[in-house]
């Protein structure tokens, strides 16, 4: 037994470039997809490959990017958060609710100073994230179900706050960050870049980041190594909610209004960005770098399809197919990796 095991180990040690590439497939495939899509649209449309359009793409993916930072943490832990869009929505609405609106807006709101409004809104999303965290870790509800319930709860709070109306005003800081720009660069792009960078630094260089990867890689082993797995899982749920909340506040400023169901498409887009980028749905593999590639794949796809002459109803189908392809690669890459490293 022992001798055959050593032989096997030696054999693996000697594995060459092919298996190495296979083990890196989850990083390579999304990148190739991005290059392929970019080249395709660049040839198909003269208006695609311009600096202006690059700015458009960056702006278009910013809100998704901010939400996806937190979601990356969650998916790295092999959990899921379906409440991101709803929490973004309710936080955006909350920050407007706490801001003085024009007289024609028919909402019984509570005007507060801008800083207080922002703080309260962040507290709200953190609190909702905490409820997710407690449901997942203390009660033991699977995150899929727990966050599904939270999706409804957050939507319910949104509905109660705006009661079918639309609010427009947000604190000036939020309004600047969401719709202003500096030196021609939209603030929202800068915020998204900073948050993505911060997420990357935390995941790569901090002890907490290592714990996230280890819990996602083998939860049982993390527990047997004496890590507080529940605390780590709870923390990523709160991180996810807070990122969603920030995305929601800036999104409201970016769109110029706060209303019910405004962020519905962001749930799928954020999950797609993380997964298309190659972060493993089984946890422990991937990271913010992957999420950035995934964001660009989605951004280029959405934007590029507008530049080519294509049936707008077909676009939805095409996006669905691309997502399916990414999921297939994701699962396949996991299997390859297990085969090579098991």
């Amino acid at each position: 037994m022992a001798s055959s095991e050593t032989a096997l180990a030696a054999d693996r040690k000697a594995r060459g470039i092919g298996p190495f590439l296979r083990s890196q497939m989850r990083n390579i495939a999304p990148f190739l997809t991005l290059i392929f899509l970019s080249l395709f649209f660049a040839f198909a449309s003269p208006s695609f490959a311009t600096l202006d359009n690059l700015g458009n793409i960056l702006t278009q993916v910013s809100v998704t990017g901010i939400i996806a930072v937190g979601l990356t943490f969650v998916i790295l832990c092999a959990e899921i958060d379906l409440s991101i869009a709803s929490i973004a929505n309710v936080t955006g609405i909350a920050v407007a609710y706490f801001t003085l609106q024009e007289s024609y807006v028919n909402i019984a709101n509570v005007p507060l100073p801008g800083a207080v409004a922002i703080l309260l809104s962040i507290l709200l999303c953190a609190l909702l994230g905490l409820v997710n965290a407690l449901g997942l870790t203390v009660i033991g509800i699977p995150s899929f179900i727990m966050t599904l319930a939270m999706m409804q709860i957050a939507a319910g709070i949104s509905a109660l706050l705006v009661r079918g109306q639309i609010a427009y005003k947000v604190p000036s800081l939020i309004s600047t960050l969401g719709s202003g720009s500096i030196g021609g660069i939209p603030w929202i792009v800068i915020v998204a870049a900073i948050m993505l960078l911060a997420g990357h630094l935390v995941l790569t260089y901090t002890r907490f980041g290592r714990y996230v990867y280890m819990v996602g890689g083998n939860r049982e082993a993390a527990e047997y190594s004496g890590l507080n797995v529940k605390l780590i899982l709870g923390t990523v749920m709160v991180i996810s909610a807070v990122c969603s909340g920030i995305g929601g506040m800036l999104g409201v400023a970016h769109f110029g209004s706060a209303q019910q169901n405004e962020f519905d498409t962001y749930l799928l887009d954020s999950i797609a960005a993380v997964v298309v980028g190659g972060t493993s749905l089984f946890g422990g593999r991937g990271g913010i770098g992957n999420t950035i590639v995934g964001l660009f794949v989605l951004g280029v796809l959405n934007n590029g399809l507008d530049h080519v002459n294509i049936d707008s109803f077909l676009k939805i189908l095409i996006r669905g197919l691309i997502l399916l392809a990414a999921l297939v690669i994701n699962v396949y890459a996991q299997r390859l990796r297990e085969k090579t490293a098991d």
Partner: peptide, 9 residues
Amino acid sequence: RRAMLFHQE
């Protein structure tokens, strides 16, 4: 061993 080690790390 599987229960306490991270095989892919």
